[in-house]
Simulated scan of single mutants.
Amino acid sequence: MLNIADTLHRWCREARPFALATVIDVYGSAPLPIGTSVAVDQDGNAVGSISGGCVEGAVYELCQQVLRDQGAPQRARFGYSDDDAFAVGLTCGGELDVLVQRIDPAAQPHLGAVLAHVVQGRPAAVAQVVAGPPGLVGSALGVLGHGVATHGTLNSGPLDRLVAEEARALLRTGRTARVTVGGNGDGCPEPLTVLVHVHASRPRMLVFGAVDFAAALSQAGRFLGYRVTVCDARPVFATAARFPYADQVVVEWPHRYLERTEVDARTAVCVLTHDDKFDIPLLRLALGLPVGYVGAMGSRRTHQERLRLLREAGVSEEQLAGLRSPIGLDLGARGPEETALSIAAEIIAHANQGTGLPLTRGTGPIHRRPVAVS
Rank of each mutant, 00 (worst) to 15 (best):
M1T: 09
D6Y: 02
L8W: 00
R10H: 05
R10I: 04
A15S: 13
F18E: 03
A21I: 01
V26S: 05
G28T: 05
S29K: 02
P31C: 07
A39Q: 04
D43G: 06
G48K: 00
E56Q: 00
A58H: 02
A58N: 05
A58K: 03
Q64Y: 09
D69N: 12
D82K: 14
D82M: 10
D83K: 08
D83C: 06
D83W: 11
T91S: 12
C92D: 12
L111H: 04
A113V: 06
L115P: 01
R122G: 13
Q128P: 05
V129I: 13
V130K: 01
A131Y: 00
V137Q: 03
S139I: 03
L141E: 05
L141C: 02
L144W: 01
L144A: 04
G145H: 04
G147N: 06
A149V: 11
H151I: 01
G152H: 03
N155Q: 07
V163E: 00
E165F: 12
T176D: 06
R178S: 06
T180S: 13
G185Q: 10
V196M: 04
P203Y: 07
R204I: 00
F208W: 04
R227N: 05
T239W: 07
W253A: 07
W253T: 15
P254N: 13
R256H: 04
Y257S: 11
V263Q: 09
D276Y: 02
L285N: 03
L289F: 02
G292Q: 05
G295F: 04
R300S: 08
R301A: 15
R301C: 05
T302M: 09
H303Q: 12
R306F: 12
E312S: 14
G314E: 07
E317D: 14
I327M: 07
L331W: 02
A333F: 11
P336L: 12
S342K: 03
A344T: 07
I347S: 02
A351R: 15
G356T: 13
G356N: 13
G362F: 09
G362K: 15
I366E: 13
P370V: 08
